[in-house]
Nucleic acid binder design. Structure first.
Lengths: 112, 112
DNA sequence: GATACCAGTTACTTAAAGGATACCAAAAAT
DNA sequence: ATTTTTGGTATCCTTTAAGTAACTGGTATC
């Protein structure tokens, strides 16, 4: 499948991907949610250093990209939760490769 | 190997990786070099829109990360070339996953 | 009645990334 | 002889990402 793509297409898809996951916080938020965290304040405490403003913005972007879902429970008072979508798990092979490369890269750089 | 890592370690490695490849130009430069481009002005023409200042900075960062090498040919006049290192090819599995995910993600977003 | 939790928003500021332009000295092409 | 090419560096400027802080409206607790 990759062989069929021109270099320009590859670049475009690569940039799409980077756009979705890059930035200081997106993957941290996803990781935290992967660990079970699902409420706004809870996420704010769990993702160290993030502010409400930024967290709010990031959550919206993740939602636009269908990686999370914002659910409003019509209990009293309303309960808002964020959940990873099944689709979000499609990131796993890529994220795993990124972790693997990063780990390996540390070793490479520390070589003489 | 990945299973042995704590979530904090995973995050750290992930961020290392993002740090190395993110930004507007790094992967474009690598792709262009993968296509055979190897001289400064040539790269500047090939990577549309990049300025000398930024290209210079990016090349230095890629070199620090051992992904490219700057070679000075002691011909007359000196000839400077940039070359992908063998190490740089270790990025391939990850980059391929990123391209694949990006391609698939376009489709996902265009769904109703 | 004051304080604190929840889920954010708004307006403003700072820091980092990137862009525009000019310039250098040597060599090559016109 | 003048222009162009080479591999950059030096300044200055703009854009974008992220941070600060105050505030909203509602609930719940002390």
């Amino acid at each position: 499948m990759l062989e069929e793509l021109t270099i320009q297409q590859k670049i475009k898809y690569l940039q799409d991907t980077l756009y979705v996951i890059s930035g200081k916080w997106k993957l941290l938020i996803l990781m935290s949610m992967y660990g079970g965290t699902c409420r706004f304040r809870e996420l704010q405490r769990s993702v160290e250093g993030i502010t409400t403003r930024v967290l709010s913005k990031e959550l919206k972007e993740l939602e636009v990209n269908k990686l999370i879902e914002r659910k409003i429970d019509n209990t009293y008072p309303v309960l808002i939760t964020y959940q990873l979508t099944p689709y979000s798990f499609s990131l796993k092979p890529m994220v795993d490769e990124m972790i693997t490369w990063g780990a390996q890269h540390r070793k490479e750089l520390s070589k003489p």
